[in-house]
């Protein structure tokens, strides 16, 4: 029962790190806030009103975004890897994030031109539609090839097409819209509000729970589709659920933070290695925690490294994530 101890200690460490990093993220920034004031604000007590505004208005929503959207990305990647039996599948490499980005950009420009904003539900819906459209293309391609490298290349191409169209649309948008759209289309957790969090926190939490409930069929699916079917997994229904959940999760991320690269591939892989198992029951919550931790760290680096200039989140996630992908590919080669 060595294993259980390992799971327990790793979980504890992940949660502890997450709490510590959250604290640092709230305290650090162009204005540093002393720990004492943070506790005062959180406890609802009297504190410097500027601090209170920064904490509740800017930093906490941003930390929530990093935690929930980062977790969602990682989980979405894990589900896609299961679906395609492909270790380098993920919402970004398969073009799903970019599909969502395209539809969100179109929606934003169209609605802004008519003088209203779509609001969080509208954005999520638009991103979800975009995710599903890209996923649909990927599914069509996956019917014609079993080669994982070919599938990924096609996904990257779909991503490029979507990005190209997005850039095209942004170029012709009104000047005032461009500023917002541009930083969003590169990916960033900045500008997240409590109102946004009220939408994505429950959606991501529900998707996480539903994914967790898929642990059992996912474990059977690891042995292959035919084996899973022979054990009693209803394959079409299971595949539909996987696709809907992974699309919803990545749509949520794209709607609020834009496309974020590499989290979906790198984190589930690192988590499996860290826990030394692929058991979905253990890995699904852990991948979520890992994604949260990874994005929190990357966001902290993105906004504090060259203060006051902020890097886009994908710049940092790619820096840490891309080497992991190379390692996965080379590790596969060896076998």
């Amino acid at each position: 029962m060595n294993k259980k101890l390992r799971y327990l200690t790793t979980y504890t460490a992940l949660i502890a790190l997450l709490l510590i990093l959250s604290g640092i993220s709230i305290a650090a920034g162009s204005i540093s806030i002393p720990a004492g004031d943070i506790f005062k604000v959180l406890a609802g007590g009297q504190a410097d009103s500027t601090y209170a505004q920064i904490i509740t208005g800017i930093r906490i929503p941003r930390v929530l975004a990093a935690i929930f959207l980062g977790g969602a990305l990682s989980l979405s990647g894990y589900l896609l890897q299961t679906f395609f039996a492909n270790p380098i599948a993920g919402p970004f490499v398969l073009g799903i994030s970019q599909g969502a980005k395209l539809v969100v950009a179109l929606t934003l420009i169209l609605t802004l031109r008519h003088g209203f904003t779509p609001g969080s539900p509208g954005l999520i819906l638009a991103a979800f539609m975009g995710s599903l459209i890209s996923t649909g293309f990927i599914l069509l391609i996956s019917r014609r090839t079993r080669k994982m490298s070919l599938l990924v290349i096609c996904g990257i191409m779909i991503g490029y097409i979507c990005s190209a169209v997005t850039d095209f649309v942004i170029t012709f948008a009104n000047d005032s819209d461009i500023v917002n759209l541009h930083s969003w289309s590169l990916g960033s957790f900045s500008g997240t509000t409590m109102a946004n969090a009220r939408f994505f926190v429950p959606i991501v939490t529900i998707a996480l729970l539903l994914s967790f409930l898929l642990s059992k069929p996912i474990s059977a699916y690891l042995l292959g589709e035919t084996s899973a079917a022979s054990m009693g997994v209803d394959i079409p229904r299971f595949r539909l659920r996987l696709i809907l959940l992974s699309s919803l999760l990545s749509a949520c991320v794209t709607a609020f933070a834009g496309p974020v690269s590499f989290v979906g591939i790198a984190v589930p892989h690192l988590i499996k290695k860290l826990f030394g198992t692929a058991k979905p029951l253990v890995i699904i919550p852990a991948a979520f925690l890992g994604g949260a931790l990874f994005c929190l760290l990357c966001d902290l680096i993105a906004r504090t490294l060259f203060m006051p200039t902020e890097l886009s989140i994908s710049t940092v996630t790619a820096f840490f994530g891309a080497p992991v992908v190379i390692a996965i590919m080379l590790g596969r080669q060896k076998r």
């Binding site: 409930l213 059992k216 292959g224 589709e225 198992t277 058991k279 029951l281 076998r335």
Partner: peptide, 27 residues
Amino acid sequence: ERQDPELMTCREVVALGRYPYTGRLGI
């Protein structure tokens, strides 16, 4: 069909055979 499920022990593979009999979470 040849699948290479990474990081699974043989016991875990065999245990999957209990799939039709285990509960919602497959424990």
